[in-house]
């Protein structure tokens, strides 16, 4: 799996290749002082960033790997791919959820080791759906939806800067992110179309989950970590548009899944 499945430019791919090659070289070093760098989660991180940071933490907790959280205002610049979160293990930096999962797998820790080839492919498909579809929906709401941008996004982005950057940077970032959505053919979609896509994603995830405890049966996998990160963030983030939350509330088994994972991995 590519380290940065959501990356858009060839440049990004190049960096992820570099990181991947460092990975294989250092994969045998030990798991000591693992640091997970994230933006300030309560004041700064945006919906999809919060989701990815939470997913990475969930993954570590599910895999029983100790880590420490470090919150920095400039994590997007420190990160080798420009995306959050990233893991620092000794001198190795690994960015983004999928990158971290691959890195940990190279160290011999796999949550999905018990799955068959077919199940593994299925899990990958779910992960890339969450990673692409769900994240794009969140990016759309955060940056493209005018009210959300002006009431929430712009002040969260500005929270770590001083004037006049508080005015300049949210706008620059918005232009960049709308450019990204445009590349994915998302910028011109209407809110209704986006919500319809979200409903489809939730429905498919809900039917996969069925009455099982986790997506792939009774044991948690990487896909569950990612799914929990996104669902929990959508449920708990206060946004001017409640449509996404209301859509999710229709799927009871997804809500139960969220409370279950939270109880099992974060409240013990």
């Amino acid at each position: 799996m590519a380290t940065t499945s959501s990356s858009s430019t060839p440049h990004r791919h190049l960096i992820s290749d570099l990181v991947a090659s460092t990975l294989s070289m250092n994969a045998d070093s030990e798991w000591i002082d693992a640091l997970l760098f994230t933006p300030f989660l309560t004041e700064q991180a945006l919906l999809y960033e919060y989701a990815d940071c939470l997913a990475a933490q969930t993954f570590f907790r599910m895999a029983g790997l100790p880590y420490q959280l470090r919150q920095r205002p400039n994590v997007d610049f420190i990160s080798p791919t420009g995306k959050v979160p990233f893991l620092k293990l000794n001198n190795v930096l690994v960015a983004e959820f999928t990158g971290i999962v691959d890195f940990v797998a190279q160290k011999g820790v796999k949550l999905s080791a018990h799955l068959t080839e077919v199940q593994l492919a299925e899990m990958m498909a779910h992960m890339s759906m969450i990673d692409l579809l769900l994240r794009n929906i969140e990016i759309y709401v955060v940056w493209r939806h005018d009210e959300t941008f002006s009431k929430i996004t712009s002040s969260r982005v500005a929270s770590v800067f001083h004037w006049p950057l508080t005015v300049i940077l949210p706008r620059l970032k918005r232009r960049e992110m709308i450019g990204y959505l445009d590349d994915q053919d998302w910028a011109t979609k209407s809110m209704d179309e986006v919500l319809e896509a979200a409903d489809r994603a939730f429905r498919s995830l809900s039917s996969q989950l069925g009455s099982c405890e986790f997506l792939m049966g009774d044991k948690p996998t990487e896909a569950d970590a990612l799914l929990f990160g996104h669902l929990y963030s959508i449920m708990t983030t206060q946004l001017p548009c409640h449509d996404l939350q209301n859509l999710l509330k229709k799927y009871n088994n997804l809500l139960d899944f969220t409370t279950r994972v939270e109880r099992e991995f974060f409240k013990r």
Partner: peptide, 23 residues
Amino acid sequence: IWRTLRVTDDAAFAVREFSGHTM
């Protein structure tokens, strides 16, 4: 001065930590 420090792939972590926008 609005400054943006962008590190290259070779930069040490001690440099990376200071990257980003500052006023």
